[in-house]
Amino acid sequence: MKVLDLQCPHDHRFEGWFASADDFESQLSRKLVECPICGATEVSRLPSAPRLNLSGATSASNASKEKAAANAGELQAHVMRALREVLEKTENVGDRFAEEARRIHYNEAPARSIRGVTTPEDARALVEEGIDVMPLPVPAALKEPLQ
């Protein structure tokens, strides 16, 4: 089993596990490898090498890099938890988002937290009407029920 360090164009770093380097290349060419954060399929392999701890000590530079990677991983985990919570506590109105947001704003529908999709133009129009909206990119990993 090969564990590869991968990165998407949005600088999200993650690991991928493959039977071989050829298996990775095959899946990558078929767009089967995607970023678990944003769903991008334009993934690149990061250079990596096995780490040998011969003396049991790490240099300050390596420790700093490891800490930065751990912090990035913690941040991604927090973002994923927050997105899961938003998905659990909002109603998905799909492509009716702009219409439903207006109905709620003008008291034509019960007040509640909603999510859905709309065009950038409709989102701007909602903001101009005084209706608060926030774009929320949902990674593909969260669009399906988690196993």
Rank of each mutant, 00 (worst) to 15 (best):
K2Q: 07
K2F: 08
V3F: 08
D5E: 08
D5Q: 07
C8E: 04
H10K: 05
D11N: 12
R13V: 10
E15S: 02
E15M: 05
F18E: 10
A19M: 06
A19F: 03
D22T: 12
D22V: 06
D22S: 10
F24C: 11
F24M: 11
F24V: 05
S29L: 09
R30N: 09
R30I: 01
K31N: 12
K31F: 00
K31E: 13
I37A: 10
A40F: 02
E42C: 03
V43E: 07
V43G: 01
S44E: 12
S44G: 13
S44Q: 13
L46H: 13
L46G: 14
P47G: 14
P47V: 12
A49D: 07
A49Y: 02
A49K: 01
A49W: 01
A49C: 04
P50Q: 01
P50S: 02
L52S: 05
L52T: 01
L52V: 03
L54A: 10
A60Q: 11
A60V: 07
S61H: 11
S61I: 05
S61R: 15
N62C: 03
A63D: 15
K65M: 12
E66A: 15
E66N: 10
E66H: 12
A68V: 06
A70H: 04
A72N: 11
G73Q: 11
G73C: 03
G73E: 13
E74D: 14
E74C: 07
L75S: 06
Q76K: 01
V79N: 08
V79E: 06
M80A: 08
M80V: 10
M80C: 11
R81N: 08
L83R: 07
R84Y: 02
E85A: 12
V86K: 11
E88H: 03
K89H: 14
E91Y: 03
N92D: 15
N92Q: 14
V93G: 01
G94L: 04
E99A: 10
A101R: 13
R103D: 15
R103H: 06
I104A: 13
I104G: 13
H105A: 15
H105G: 10
N107C: 09
P110F: 08
P110W: 03
P110T: 15
A111Q: 04
A111C: 02
R112K: 14
S113R: 05
V117A: 12
V117W: 00
T118A: 14
T118D: 13
T119W: 03
T119G: 06
R124L: 14
A125W: 08
L126P: 05
V127L: 14
V127S: 12
E128L: 14
I131W: 03
D132T: 10
V133S: 08
V133R: 00
P135N: 07
L136H: 03
P137C: 00
V138H: 00
P139Q: 09
P139D: 02
A141E: 00
A141W: 00
A141I: 13
K143Y: 03
